[in-house]
């Protein structure tokens, strides 16, 4: 009888045949995954745009109300002039260039960024203070629980009464969007830090302060980042609302103007820009997350 391949008898373990050579793949797996993601993204977008264009082509859409992409993207210089800085609702400025557009995008993005940063840091600070200081907990928690479910949009009038017209009300609205969520999440997350982590810190002789900075904060950071990302899109929504009413510059103001002047092309152009910015900011936040929370595998997310 011939011995079957793959069978090991006593005494001959490890008598190996040469392993079959594996050809190295042309592209690294990570690169392949990225390319395929981009590919599918393009396909998905073209499908959407194609459908839209087809409906227009067969005359099923009124191009004045729902202009398809090739229309609202074709007249870019014409559209750009609406972004001029000196522009106010109803007037069309003469200056044409890409800078006003970038300025508008930049100011909206900056408001989101500042609001998120402030909301995140203040949220963690207040959440931790409430967790550790009993007096603060008793004083603040009931009010916070009452205020948390109020939609940020409802704060808009308050923001304008208090801060007037300008950047601040928009930033404040973004702040409100993340602040309460982070406060509540911080408390809950500190509660659920594994007891053994705290035990290790105590045995090693860590002070309260060291325990917080070296153990508790890194332990809760992944979930807090997740909360932040979940609220990112909400932050983009409220900043636009604030801009239509309380600021007078930014993408929200442009949309509002486009609506009141019945400029459908401008509406869709701005929507495309907003979509792009929202996507890019989520992407950027993911990059920050991967850098700061290096110990969590990227595809694992921070869903812990």
């Amino acid at each position: 009888m011939t011995a079957d391949a793959g069978q090991t008898r006593l005494g001959e373990a490890g008598a190996g045949r040469p392993a079959p050579k594996i050809k190295p793949p042309l592209l690294s797996p990570a690169l392949r995954r990225r390319l395929s993601a981009i590919g599918w993204g393009l396909i998905s977008l073209s499908l959407f745009a194609g459908l839209w264009e087809a409906l227009w082509f067969f005359g099923m859409l009124n191009p004045l109300l729902l202009p398809p992409p090739h229309l609202f993207l074709s007249d870019i210089p014409g559209t750009l002039k609406f972004f001029d800085r000196s522009n106010r609702i109803g007037s069309v400025a003469s200056g044409v260039g890409v800078w006003p557009l970038l300025f508008t995008m930049g100011s909206t993005t900056l408001r989101v960024l500042v609001g998120l940063t402030l909301g995140f840091t203040c949220g963690v600070a207040v959440g931790a203070a409430i967790h550790y200081v009993k007096l603060l907990r008793n004083l603040l928690l009931p009010t916070i629980l009452l205020l948390a479910p109020i939609s940020p949009v409802a704060w808009l009038p308050v923001a304008i009464f208090v801060f007037g017209i300008g950047d601040v009300p928009a930033i404040f609205l973004v702040f409100i969007t993340v602040f309460f969520a982070i406060v509540l999440s911080t408390g809950a997350q500190i509660e659920s830090v594994p007891k053994n982590y705290i035990h290790v810190a105590r045995i090693m002789g860590a002070s309260q302060r060291q325990t917080f900075w070296k153990v508790i904060l890194p332990a809760i950071l992944p979930s807090l980042f997740m909360t932040l990302r979940l609220n990112l899109f909400a932050a983009w929504m409220v900043v636009l609302i604030a801009e239509t009413v309380g600021v007078g510059t930014g993408l929200g103001q442009i949309t509002s103007m486009a609506r009141s002047t019945f400029n459908a092309k401008l509406v869709f152009f701005t929507m495309a820009i907003i979509g792009l910015l929202g996507f890019l900011s989520d992407f950027a936040l993911r990059q920050v997350q991967n850098k700061m929370l290096w110990w969590i595998a990227p595809n694992q997310g921070a869903a812990r």
Binding site: V200, I203, G205, P218, A219, W295, I296
Partner: peptide, 26 residues
């Protein structure tokens, strides 16, 4: 020293930094 059933190493530190944790604290 106390060692638990679950190793309870800190996932945000490398192995060397985990081992050095007590020294860092001090």
């Amino acid at each position: 020293g106390l060692i638990f059933q679950e190793a309870s190493l800190f996932p945000w530190l490398t192995i060397a930094d985990n081992v050095a944790f007590g020294l860092a604290v001090q």
